[in-house]
Structure formats: structure tokens, C-alpha cells
Design a protein around this nucleic acid. Structure first.
Lengths: 181, 181
DNA sequence: GTCTATACCTGGATAGAC
DNA sequence: GTCTATCCAGGTATAGAC
């Protein structure tokens, strides 16, 4: 609950998602935060400690978010999930999974474990939502719910990536298409 | 058409797709190729020169490949396009676009330009294929062809990324879903 | 065209003062 | 908890011999 610690995590999260894990340095955080890099090492001795903290932080926020949606209709929950990726888009940031997955093999074992757990949890939640929604006649699709969840998660993740390259309306187009489940 | 030059490009391509652009070094290529890093600088003075060459090489291969498909039925062309991503999957490599797009903003201007051109060309070709196929009654979808192309390209790209993290059958599942257009 | 040698820099990390 | 100072490794890049 330390304020500085939280700030470091927040800045590192932005840097990972805008530049990538290997392309940012403690100096980048120092500049923004107005402290020396030694201060950052005090909180996170190694860069991978910081990486793990960023992933854990994202995982926590995700759990809190879906818990806050629990009472909402399935359709609304789904809309929230799809559009929550848009916030990151405005700043041209990709999501954490999109930023870290390409270099997965180069990450520390701890980062790999936490990232996999996060990915699993997202898919499990989304699969459940789609299944429940279909049972209630809200969603309409023929494939297995898990397959649908994979496709949706993939499309959203990659739409943010392609958006950086194409610099057009990819994200919006894909979102609109997905929303008509 | 220099053999060493071609080899360097091939190795760099693998390294970018397995580790990422910022996580590989000239030393990695030296090791595989059995030469010193100075030799690589002879062909590619700067790392971004090498990066551009890798992108151009991929763009060329893509153009050659789709040209070789020109006489095939739309359906077959589409199947080839979807399954061509699978080759890269076997080695746990992602596609070049998936590897480079997250760190797009950190790349040299030349790399950015070439990468955007490649992305544009893929979307243009895929959009045309989908449109022509639908006109002939082979494909069935209701959204705009370009939207469909965005979704398909996104799903394929991200399926390789998620595959690295989830280490399961994401790629296969998504491919099967996409193939039923 | 490839080598040795080396310059230069950045980045991650630590020791010890305050 | 933050600082200064510093170390070390690795990475990009170049000069000049062969």
C-alpha cells in the first residue's frame, strides 16, 4: 500500500504496454517519478520483480472488475469486457497480454507463471459468461463456448496491436463485429 | 543474392519471432552462423537495417506466395492462408506482425513504414479474397469484407501469441472456427 | 568478406552515506 | 527511503589488419 511503490507499478505498466518489457529501463521510470533508479531498486530489486508486480496488479484489478459486474446482466458484462479494452486504445497502449506474450520465452519463470495464470483466468471467466448467456438465450453462437472465448480474446488483443501499425479504425471495426454475438 | 546475407536475414527473422526485436543481439546471430558480429555489421551496418531487411523479405515472400495461389479456387486460397500460420506455430514462433507490432513505437522510421505497408497489403489481399468468394457464394458472412478481414487477421495473429502463454490448443481451435466462414 | 580489437554507451544492479 | 557513486555485463558499432 506504499504510494511510491504503487506509482512505480503504474508507470511500469504503462511503459510495458507502450514500449514493451525489454525496451523500457529503470531510467524511464526515474525520469517520470523524479527519483533515482536506486530508489526503484529498493522496491523492486530486479526488473523481473517489477514485471511480476505489474502482472499481479493487472490480475487483481481484473478480479475486482469482474466481481463488481456480478449483478449485471450477461449482455452488459460482455459489453463492458469488450469496451474496457478501448480505454487502453485511446493512448495507443496495447493490453498487458499483447505486450508480453510475443517475448514470453524471454521472461523470468515467475513472470511466465503469473502471466499464464492471468490468461487462464480471463478465458475461464469469459467462457463461463458466454455459456451462461447462451443458455439464457442472450448470446447466439454454434461453436463451443471455449472456442468462442478464444476467438474473442484473440480478436480484442490483436486489434490493439494492429491498430498501432495500421493507425486506422481496426479496433472499432472489430469491436462492433464482436459485439453482435 | 549473397548466401551469407540471406542466412543472416533468415536467422534474424527466427530470432525476432521467437524472442522479439529488442531481445536479440548480433551475438545471437554470430553464434548460429559461426562468424563474428563485425561480419554481420558488414552486411547490415545498423540493427534497424537488418530489421528492415527482415520485413522486406517477409513482404516479398508473401507476394510470391499469393501470386502462386492465383489460379486456385478462393476457398483453397483461404485455407492455405489460414494454415500457413501453423508452420510457424510448430516451432512456437509467432508471425512477424505479432512480434513487431507491440513495440511499433520503438522501431526506426524505416521499419515502421515497411511494416505498415506489409500490414496494409495483407488486409487488402484478404479483403479482396473474401469479397470475391462471397460474390461467388463460397463464403457466407454479413459484415463488411474489410471488417471480416480485420477479424480473421487479428484472430490468427493473436492465436499464435496466446498459444505461447496458454500452451494448449488455442491455435487449432481458432483455426477451425475461422475456417467455417 | 571476415577477422581482432576496441570504443562507447546503456542498463541492471549494489554499497554505503545521509 | 532516497541519495551518490560505482561496478559490471552486454550490446551496438567502428577502425584497420588480413
Amino acid at each position: 500500500m506504499n504510494a511510491t511503490r504503487e506509482e512505480i507499478i503504474r508507470i511500469a505498466d504503462e511503459l510495458i504496454r507502450s514500449k514493451g518489457y525489454h525496451a523500457f529501463s529503470y531510467a524511464d521510470i526515474s525520469k517520470v517519478l523524479g527519483v533515482k533508479n536506486a530508489a526503484i531498486h529498493y522496491y523492486f530489486p530486479s526488473k523481473s520483480d517489477l514485471g511480476v508486480a505489474v502482472i499481479d496488479n493487472t490480475a487483481e484489478k481484473f478480479q475486482q472488475t469482474i466481481r463488481s459486474w456480478e449483478q449485471l446482466p450477461y449482455e452488459t458484462q460482455f459489453q463492458h469486457f469488450v469496451t474496457m479494452h478501448q480505454k487502453t486504445k485511446k493512448n495507443e497502449w496495447v493490453c498487458l497480454m499483447g505486450a508480453l506474450s510475443p517475448t514470453y520465452d524471454t521472461l523470468s519463470e515467475n513472470m511466465q507463471l503469473q502471466l499464464k495464470e492471468l490468461a487462464d483466468n480471463i478465458i475461464i471467466w469469459l467462457t463461463g459468461l458466454l455459456e451462461n448467456g447462451r443458455a439464457k438465450g442472450i448470446f447466439h453462437f454454434t461453436e463451443e463456448a471455449k472456442a468462442k472465448a478464444y476467438c474473442i480474446q484473440s480478436s480484442l488483443l490483436a486489434s490493439l496491436l494492429l491498430n498501432k501499425v495500421l493507425k486506422n479504425d481496426v479496433y472499432q471495426v472489430i469491436q462492433n463485429t464482436i459485439l453482435t454475438v
